[in-house]
Structure formats: C-alpha cells, structure tokens
Computed example of a mutant assay.
Amino acid sequence: MRPDHCVTRNHIEVWHPRVLPAGPERIRFRTVLRGSLLAALVWTVAACFAYVLYNPLAAAVLGGLFTLSFTVGFGLRGRAGHSARCSLYGALGGVLDKSMAGL
C-alpha cells in the first residue's frame, strides 16, 4: 500500500462521520478522537462504574477487553500492509466504532 494513501478516511472508520474531511486526505489523530468522542465517553463511564460499583478488578477486565480488541485490530491492519500510523488510527477508530454498534 502506498504511504500517501494509507492514512485516509477510507481506512479509518469513526463513529461520527461529520468530523471527517470532505475527500480522501490525511487525517489527524485528534480527528479520530473527536469523531469517536461518544464511544470514548461510554468506555470511560463504563470503566468508572465498574470500578466504583464492583471493584478495581472489574475495571481492569474492561480495560483488558479494550486493549485486546485494539491489539487485534492493530495486528490485522499491519498484516494487511497498512503503515503503523494507519494501523494505530484504524485500530482505535475501529474499536470505538464497533463498540457503539448497538446504540
């Protein structure tokens, strides 16, 4: 895959498409986070509730689930020939996007 086309909106799925640029162009990490703000907030609130209501182990398990999903997404994108930057953005955006699929 050519490096100039790797980090494009076509390879990064974020939950809130209005924050993406109009055409296929490089996007910033801030854009990925801004597009997935609701999903990141849901993960954070769930971890806080798990910590307060149950115990720190429940929050650690939830964090481990997030980390595992991110690692698998990063690995799959890396094996597909994406750059490390594209894999990072895509894995983060993909985890946040797929976790909000039910809402």
Rank of each mutant, 00 (worst) to 15 (best):
D4L: 06
R77V: 03
G90V: 02
T67P: 03
F66P: 02
G75V: 09
G90H: 04
S36F: 00
F74K: 05
L41G: 11
F29G: 01
V95T: 08
V95H: 07
L65I: 10
F70C: 03
Y89L: 11
R85D: 15
Y51W: 13
R85T: 15
L37Q: 08
L103R: 08
F66T: 05
C86V: 02
A39N: 08
A101Q: 12
H5A: 10
P56F: 03
V14D: 01
V52Q: 14
F49R: 08
D4W: 05
V32G: 01
G78A: 11
V19Q: 02
L96I: 03
P17S: 01
L41C: 12
F49L: 15
A60K: 04
R79C: 11
A40K: 05
A101E: 11
P3T: 14
K98Q: 15
R34H: 04
D4Y: 09
R18K: 12
P24H: 15
V45G: 06
A50P: 01
V45A: 13
L96T: 01
A50E: 13
A40Q: 05
H11W: 10
Y54V: 15
V45I: 14
D97C: 07
V45D: 00
R79L: 15
R34W: 03
L103Q: 08
S87W: 00
A47V: 07
L37D: 00
L92D: 00
G73D: 09
S36D: 14
V14P: 05
A91C: 00
Y89H: 07
H82D: 07
N10M: 09
F49P: 04
V52G: 01
A91L: 04
R26G: 02
G35Y: 06
L57Q: 10
S83N: 08
A50V: 04
R9I: 12
S99I: 08
D97W: 12
V14E: 00
A47P: 03
P17W: 01
C48S: 15
G94L: 07
H16E: 14
P21V: 06
S69Q: 13
F29D: 02
W15Q: 12
Y89V: 05
L20T: 01
A101C: 04
V42C: 10
C6N: 14
S87M: 00
Y54R: 12
S69I: 03
E25H: 09
L37C: 07
A60M: 10
M100K: 03
V42L: 11
K98T: 15
P17G: 04
V32M: 01
R77N: 07
T71Q: 12
D97V: 00
L88E: 09
Y51F: 15
T67C: 13
L38G: 09
L37G: 06
V61Q: 10
L76C: 09
A101Y: 08
S36A: 10
A46Q: 10
K98H: 15
P21Q: 05
V95E: 08
F74Y: 15
K98Y: 14
L20I: 06
L96N: 02
A91G: 02
R30V: 14
I12D: 00
G73N: 13
M100E: 07
I12W: 06
G75H: 13
R79H: 08
R26Q: 11
F74V: 01
H82C: 04
